[in-house]
Each structure stands twice: as C-alpha cells, then as structure tokens.
Design a protein around this nucleic acid. Structure first.
Lengths: 355, 355
DNA sequence: CTGTTAGCGCTTTCAG
DNA sequence: CTGAAAGCGCTAACAG
C-alpha cells in the first residue's frame, strides 16, 4: 500500500491533477473556493502527502540545505548547526547533514552528494586546510563547488574561502576576523602577563589555526614581546590533552624557583584544545591559573560550566550559522562577503594569582 | 547552464540512456567493458552528477534517513546524532535533520516532512511525553508514523514508544532501561548516603524523566529509605540551574548545625540538569560534595571535563544512535525491540567528604 | 548485451 | 477558472 498521489486525490475530488496541485500547493492561480474545499477534503481523507522528490524534479529545487561539519558532536559545530537549523526552519527548508573528518577529499564527496540531491544551498563550516598533499583534493573541491554554483547552487563557507575557489556567483564567505581577534587577545594578555607565551596550534596548514597563530604572534610583537613557541597537535580535545601532558613536564621543571607572575601563558587555538590542555595539566597536579595561564578561542557553550573559567575570544557561533544560511539562502545578494565579529573575553584562567 | 543529464551523457557516448544508467549506477546487468569505458569517459568529461531526486522518484526510495532531536547543540543529542551519522555513512545514506522543541505537534510535522521526502527511515531521539493537553497531538503523531510505516517506512524511536503507536511492521524501539538503572543508582547511593534525597525531574509527563524518577524511588524504597521529594523543572541546563537556586537556599537553612554525612543528596534526571544544578549551587557559595551530593544521568561527553566529577549513569549514546539507525536501516528484522544497557558510574560528586 | 518504451508524481505552459 | 498535455531525469520491464 503505497502513499496516495495527487492524481488519486484529484480523481476523488473529481478534478484534474492540475487543479488539485494548484489548491494543495501554492500557486499564483486560485481555484474556486468550492472546488478548493472539495480537493482539500479529498486530500486529507486520503492522508495525502506531496512527494517532495517529484516536486523537486518538476521544479528543479529541493528545499534542502546541506551542512558540512567535521564532527556534529563537537560543541563548536553543534552550535553552528543549531544556527543553521534555526534559519533553515525560517526558510521552510530542511537540513542535510554531512560530517567529514577533515579532508578536502571527503568534503568534495559531500558537496557532490548535496549537488546530486539538488540542495538549494550548501554551508561548509569546517576549517579549510592547505596541507601539502591536499593541493589536488583542494583543487577538485574547488572545481566541484564551482560547478555547483554554476548550476545555480548557493554556497557559504565559514571563516575562510576554499583554496582556489573562483569568485563565482553564488559563492559566499562568512568572514571571521580570526587573526585580528587573536592579536587583540595577545595584546590583552601581554599587558597583564610577564612570563613567556606558548601557542598550541592545530595541524600546520589549517587556516583557522594558522590565522589565529599569526594574529597572536603579531599581537605579542606589537606589545614588544618575543614570539611564542608554537606546538602543533590535532585540532580537537585529544590534541589539547596530548599537548598538555607534554607541557606539564616543562612547567614542572621550570617551577624550580617559580615566581607567580612570570609563569607560562598558554594560548590554545580553540576552546576544546584549551579544555584538553587544562585537563592534562590538572591530571599532572598543576593548577590554573596558579601554575600556568590558559586561553582558548570560540567561547563554546561548554565553557559556561568549565572551571576554572576560561579566557577566550567570544564568537557568535549560532549567529554564524544563521548568517551563513541566510547568505546562502537568498539569491538576492549574488555573491559576497558576510561578516561577524568576536570579542576578547578574559576570565579567571588568565588572572594573575595572588602571591 | 543546468547540470548535465544522463541523456546527454548517453548521447555523447553514443549509447542509449538505459545503457548509460547501467554503467554509471549499479545494476545487475554489466555492459561491455568497451562501451562502459566510453560512457564513463563521457560522464566525467561532462561532470555528470546523477540527479538523486529523479533516481528516487524512479526507484521510490531516497537514501535519506531522518533524525528528530530536540536540540542538536545539546550534548546528549549531539552524541546520538554522531552515532546516527556514522551508521548512515556506512549505509551510504544521508542524514536529514529536524529539531523540535519538544511538542508532539512539531514531531508530527517533522515526520510528515520526512515522509514527503520519502526518507527510507526515521530515528526519533527526543523523549516522548504524555502531558495532559498533548493527547491529541500524540494521537496524530502516532497516526502519522503509522501511515509512514504502512507505506514501507522504517521507524526507530529511542527510549520509549510513541504514545498510542500501533505495533506496525517497521516500527522499532531502542529500549533504554531507564527505570532499572535509576533504581540501581539509588541503591548505590543509599548505601553510602545517610541524608535525605531530592529528585530534580523534568516536566511531569515526560517519559524519560518519569521513568527515572520512578526507578530512583523504587531503589530508595528497596533500600528501606523514605521516598524522595520531587521537584519539576525544564528538562535542560536552565531547568537545573533554576532548580539549583531554589535548592541552595534550602541547603543553607538546613546547614545550621550541619553534619557532613547526612547532607542532601540530589538526583537530577539528566546530566545537563545536574550541571545546571551544580552551577547554581556553586554560585550560591556551596560546594560539592561538601555541602551536597549530586548525581545525574546519561554520562554525556561534557562530563569528562566537568568538576567536580559527576556521578551518573553511563549510557552508550553513540551506540544508541547507531543501533537505532541500524534497526531502522534493514528491513531484515521486521519490527522489534532493540536494547542497549547502561551502567551506574559513581564519581566524586557523591563521595562523602572527609570530616 | 543493448535499445525502446513506459512510467515514478508533480508542475506548468497552453488551450478551452 | 479549469483541463489536457508535455515534460523534470532516471529506472525497469520488455523486446530485439
């Protein structure tokens, strides 16, 4: 027993499928109210549900919006996803989810899959990378997006354009001033912090990570401080934890003759890494901010309940999701750059402990 | 410039669309390798991407799996979503996301939307409720699901069947032994805890919440303890926080002449509520476990970095997502009950502080 | 093994 | 204002 079709409804109502279509789904034409009523009655007596695939085929559009994230359970992506979802709902669209462990190769596949489903627009939230070895995959990804746009698709990428992406109509970038914000953070920290700085970054070539590292170094330089050492680890909590176990030893060694205000100040390029780092230090018996200061980036919701309260750069994550979706939703603004801003947010993890 | 079609590919390769279809998409038939090669070449010279809508229409299936959650940014749902996503990928399907603020009304709409898109299966992760006033909406939801199943759809709901859902072919339930686990938790706590118990539940009528409350009370009773008072608050972090501000005062009042081991032991029916509760108590200047013990339920990933370490009942969240998806994925097992198990996990938040 | 012929369910000109 | 007819792009019986 298959679902009932428009034709069946039409027959039951004694009208043509065309008319039934006109009353059941929006149309410029407005059938007579008597007829309309009859059709509607027939429709729900049969429990009619329009076949979106058929509608899509006929109208060549789908009401779908594709979202690409690295990991939906990462609070950063989850928050963006919530924003995307909210905006999608406003637009009466549904969200198609794809998770890619990070490679441009997988992203290309996801884009192709979305294109196959004729998604009206695609939001790419994951960070782009330019690791050596990824060039080819990146080129292919760019080509895929290009084709998608040329076929009328709308794309919004968060944070950083896709490497080599042509400036096609329909291609939007939600600019996040990672570098400037990181610089601002460094400036603030340099003011109240006399010790050395250490940066825990993601894999080399990850744009988001690189931007933040560069910005932080610039901020330090502007404050007349020497450049910080940079360590590279995976861009997630485990990476931060791993880094933390390495750093803990260092701190302990330096601790001989420790002097509070000159202790190490660690900047992890995102909050989950900062959290991992803090966890590792705690496991090693160290305390924040007593034995080291830590700052992160993103201000994920999880931080609200994390102790010590973590200094970070607040990013309007949900808003980013909404803006991206909105930008990719309306063809109004052909192609362009959307912007959001963040804010340095100092909390207890970088306070100078009382002597 | 629209995307190129199978027909175009066929023409370019000098074969019939049927043949092109056979080589480009899996088919029992295997065209000659010379022809096949020609078609494949034509296909990617044109950058051909099959139109999934058309395929779906023709095959009446879509490769889509619909997921319904309350809030994708809630760690509980995010973890389940990750599991669903993983399994979906294994099955070469894509996940369609819908978030409902909780009402059966919205869930009904989501199911209808999935049905319209001809999703092969639907996973409902949100908790079902039987609030007075929801009866009608619940009935409609059940009817919608029923129809969906009758039309060949597969459904898996997590935790609790939909109220009034007929035992249709294709309807699966991932049983979570909430009640028993809560009872086990209560038993453990009763053993090491002499003070009173207090339960912070979700809204009355929410099955997950009610089951856990019932189980906990049963566990207390079996241990010869008097029933705990139950407070009802929203089923999220805010609810827990709100509850916490109310409870804090109580604790302080009782604190006059406090005696460590007899302090209050609070059971919040899920971890996010427990976290909210803990936050509120901390804001009020109270400390866990010194001034009160707290336990939650779910063991969300966030707990790993929460302090004090929270006692809870571990649930294999990702696994639940996978199992649900798997159950709803294969028509093999017509209809039935899938099960997962949890485990009481005691941590520092319920330890008895040293005198 | 390949090509032809019908649709899948809906929208949309175009007549009436 | 309504109906008839022609597809949207692809698959699946059938023939050849």
């Amino acid at each position: 027993m298959a679902a009932s079709t428009l034709t069946e409804v039409a027959r039951l109502a004694g009208v043509s499928p065309a008319t039934a279509s006109r009353v059941l789904n929006g149309s410029a034409r407005k059938p007579g109210s008597d007829i309309a009523e009859r059709v509607r009655r027939a429709a729900d007596s049969l429990g009619y549900i329009p076949n979106a695939q058929a509608q899509g085929l006929a109208k060549s559009s789908s009401g779908l919006i594709g979202l690409i994230v690295h990991d939906i359970a990462d609070p950063y992506f989850a928050a963006i996803a919530r924003g995307v979802q909210e905006e999608a709902r406003l637009q009466h669209r549904m969200v198609l989810l794809a998770t890619t462990t990070g490679g441009p190769q997988e992203e290309r596949e996801a884009v192709a899959a979305f294109a196959a489903r004729r998604a009206d627009s695609i939001v790419i939230a994951g960070s782009r990378s330019a690791k050596p070895g990824d060039e080819e995959a990146n080129t292919e990804l760019a080509a895929e997006l290009d084709r998608y746009c040329r076929n009328g698709g709308q794309v919004a990428v968060v944070g950083h354009p896709v490497v080599g992406a042509a400036n096609t109509e329909g291609y939007h970038v939600v600019k996040v001033p990672n570098e400037d914000l990181a610089a601002a953070l460094a400036a603030e920290l340099a003011r109240k912090h006399q010790g050395e700085f250490l940066i825990i970054g993601g894999p080399e070539g990850l744009f988001t990570s690189d931007d933040r590292i560069r910005g932080f170094q610039r901020g330090l330089a502007d404050a007349g401080r020497t450049a910080a050492e940079v360590l590279h680890y995976p861009f997630n909590r485990s990476g931060g934890y791993e880094a933390g176990t390495a750093v803990a030893q260092r701190i302990k060694d330096a601790h001989v003759g420790s002097n509070g205000p000159a202790r190490l100040c660690i900047f992890a390029v995102n909050d989950v890494m900062a959290i991992g780092m803090a966890g590792a230090l705690r496991s090693a018996g160290l305390r924040i901010p007593r034995d080291a200061a830590i700052a992160g980036f993103d201000d994920i919701e999880t931080l609200r309940d994390f102790r010590p309260e973590l200094s970070t750069v607040h990013l309007p994550l949900e808003e980013i999701g909404r803006v991206a979706t909105r930008g990719a939703g309306s063809t109004l603004n052909g192609q362009g750059t959307l912007a959001v801003d963040g804010q340095v947010t100092l909390r207890r993890s970088t306070e100078t402990p009382l002597p």
